[in-house]
């Protein structure tokens, strides 16, 4: 089963770009996550990116740092995140699911054990922020064996030679980081993003997603004109944070934000 490839193929046939929401698993408590995932699918999420909390998220801005801290207060470990995926899959066999996080929890679990558990739970892709292709050979082997797509980031600082190197090992889709900075960072320039996507398109036939700094429906719509997928993270997680004391309201609130984005993207 290759849910990511199938989903992009279906969207392409419809002439649409994918909307990919990111939320941190276990934020503000583990009970919220699975209902939230279903609500996001209902509101038009095409792929879900689920953040695995880590104590030292060095690529993340304050919004997602705090989300990780809230989730870790409830001991949301990698194995617990995989249980959430398993539970999500009881009702949803179709929506592709990508885990995003840092390497150390995977190191501690062991690459092979992680890959097998993730595949069994129904994970389709894994984006590990702090492992470049140069260090990834062993992890890639383990993921390939269970047909999980390794997703890699490409940054504004990535040279064309590195873009080719990354595209050679990536599958599923590649993820262009639209700003120099951390998640939830400043303003992105759509025209500049478009020009940066050209060398990536030359290097790969994989769909190209864009994220970091997409704050509202208008920006999501503009990015969807040039990218195959739009990733929205901090803008959602800050809404989760605002409702941390009324977690029952979170799924509906996030669904509302996503619906507006889905409508704007067409």
């Amino acid at each position: 089963m290759n849910r990511i490839r199938d989903r992009f193929a279906a969207l392409k046939a419809q002439g649409r770009s994918a909307l990919i929401p990111f939320v941190t698993a276990g934020d503000p408590n583990p009970g919220v996550t699975v209902p939230l995932m279903h609500a996001m699918v209902g509101a038009g999420a095409d792929i879900i990116e689920l953040g695995v909390p880590f104590s030292d998220p060095m690529a993340d801005g304050p919004v997602i740092q705090r989300a990780s801290e809230r989730a870790l207060e409830h001991h949301t470990s990698l194995s617990r995140v995989l249980k959430m995926v398993d539970e999500f899959r009881e009702q949803d066999q179709d929506t592709p699911l990508v885990l995003m996080g840092y390497l150390n929890p995977i190191e501690v679990m062991g690459y092979a054990a992680f890959a097998e558990s993730a595949a069994r739970a129904g994970v389709d892709g894994v984006l590990t922020v702090d492992i470049p292709p140069e260090e990834a050979a062993e992890l890639l082997d383990c993921l390939h064996r269970v047909e999980i797509a390794p997703i890699f980031l490409i940054a504004p600082t990535t040279t064309e030679a590195r873009i080719r190197k990354i595209c050679n090992v990536a599958s599923g889709f590649v993820y262009y980081v639209s700003v120099k900075g951390i998640t939830g960072a400043g303003n992105l320039d759509v025209a500049e993003v478009a020009s940066k996507l050209e060398p990536i398109r030359k290097a790969t036939k994989l769909p190209v997603g864009v994220g970091f700094g997409i704050k509202d429906a208008e920006t999501a719509a503009a990015i969807s004109e040039v990218a195959d997928a739009v990733v929205v993270g901090s803008a959602l997680v800050s809404r989760v944070e605002a409702l941390m004391n009324e977690p029952a309201l979170i799924p509906e609130e996030i669904a509302g934000v996503l619906s507006a984005m889905r409508d704007a993207m067409g």
């Binding site: 702090d130 492992i131 470049p132 260090e135 980031l153 940054a155 504004p156 040279t159």
Partner: peptide, 20 residues
């Protein structure tokens, strides 16, 4: 040349930092 001391060291950073 890749910064490894046996199994240790290396370059485990977000992509934005690789070229710098």
């Amino acid at each position: 040349e890749n910064g490894h001391f046996g199994p240790y060291g290396g370059l485990f950073v977000p992509e934005t930092l690789m070229e710098p």
